[in-house]
Design a protein around this nucleic acid. Structure first.
Lengths: 248, 248
DNA sequence: TGAACTGTGTAAACACCGTTCACCGAAGTC
DNA sequence: GACTTCGGTGAACGGTGTTTACACAGTTCA
């Protein structure tokens, strides 16, 4: 390997340096502080040089968001690796708690990736397969854990709880995505293993997980929550309980 | 009335003009486009003149967020006024649907008020009474509807569903806030009418309402939702159902 | 080896931005 | 009429994204 010419190596290196500095500025002083001139200053070069690497500041922020998703996914996967393969409940716990802790520890990154109106950041276009409304790398982790959950548990939802017809077409798209995600892990799956009611429940779980985390990060609970962790844990226990697992 | 001197009237007028222009820029081109110079240009004055009205751009954005909360509250109250006083289910429907429609129609305003990391915007400090983590005016509407709900319905939650001890202290704060909100409407209330399990459910409802709306505004559902409205309505029906009302 | 080409940096410039300052004139006060 | 207050101006400082013309080192190839 290492076929890369000297120039290519240097380029890759400064490219990493640029994003590392951009990231540091984002973390330290927020999105508006991520300026081309500040990055260049820190790197000992001039701002226009950055245009050799990115089309614009917007473009850089876009790549930055991608990096953040990748890091988040890696962090969640690390946490997941420490948990026995067969303890799916603990896996769900780990991913959800990991997401919350990451978001609280990295509010600026969270805001950039998960609460931006620009469709360019974090979210891909609808896509021909209906995939990837959320950052690619992170979406993979989320889907993967959902996948493990499905593969390890036969028909979590069979309480006859039926899903309104109007949701079928959308949920079937997501069902397809989930089945593919499980398939990618070697375990074949089909619609019997993953009824629409389960797909619906996964969607609702994301709504609640995201809702709680965003409210906490942005401080928008309807009252000053002094101790948010038990609130989160209790929500999580309820989510897991509704899936047909024990809550602990 | 109209004790106001000529000068005071003029001042109030330009103050409104400033915020109206700021608002227009926010809506049209996003938060970053709300620049003092652009506002001044549009008003036919110079940028430094704005410092006679606001301490800084940040200060202006803060007041802008307040305005937005007030408008949102007014819009929700308008919708509420069209609904019979005794039909609480319809009232909850109206407020939740109204919030979603407002957010989808005003994504930039939503992002500013409900998804900013700056604590100065929308969120007040913890406050001595533990109130107002969410924009004052909007918070009032939210609490008011919750209040009507409580006042009209005796003990929605008595399925013995018990709330973990670790949540008690926080929920009691919110319970106090809610009881006061009901009291402000003339109807006295106490802890018997509003058990902690009901308070908990109201909190969880906000998590889900906010979660769904934010995910939709920011396009962060895990798959491309072609038709989000039924998804929202079904969540809403479930929320209302869990309160002990019919889902219709 | 030397010529040609490519990629990576520079400095200068343009048009913006928030903010501060000294100043000025009209509005209000005594 | 003198004096103060208020709302505005223009100039300036230091910052921003971006474009342009230019220089120079690394690479390629005859």
């Amino acid at each position: 390997m290492t076929e890369a010419t000297r120039r290519e190596r240097l380029r890759a290196e400064t490219e990493r340096d640029i994003r590392r500095q951009a990231r540091a500025l984002l973390v330290a002083h927020g999105r508006d502080a991520v300026t081309l001139r500040a990055i260049a200053r820190e790197l000992g070069i001039t701002a226009p040089a950055l245009y050799r690497y990115y089309d614009s500041r917007e473009d850089l922020l876009h790549h930055l968001a991608d990096d953040i998703c990748t890091d988040l996914a890696a962090e969640l996967n690390d946490g997941l690796a420490r948990i026995p393969d067969d303890d799916v409940t603990a896996q769900v716990h780990a991913v959800c708690r990991g997401f919350r802790h990451w978001a609280l520890a990295h509010p600026q990154e969270f805001a950039l990736v998960f609460a931006s109106t620009e469709t360019a950041l974090g979210a891909r276009g609808p896509g021909p397969d209906g995939r990837g409304q959320v950052g690619d790398q992170f979406g993979r982790v989320f889907l993967e854990v959902a996948g493990r959950l499905i593969a390890s548990h036969r028909v979590p939802h069979d309480h006859g709880e039926h899903v309104p017809d109007s949701l079928h077409s959308d949920l079937e798209v997501f069902q397809r995505v989930l089945i593919d995600a499980v398939g990618a892990r070697g375990i074949p799956a089909d619609g019997d293993l993953l009824p629409l009611s389960a797909v619906y429940h996964i969607t609702q779980s994301w709504v609640r997980l995201y809702g709680h985390v965003a409210l906490e990060v942005f401080g928008r609970f309807p009252f000053a929550v002094a101790n948010p962790e038990p609130l989160f844990d209790s929500m999580l226990a309820q989510l897991i309980g509704e899936m047909g697992f024990d809550s602990r």
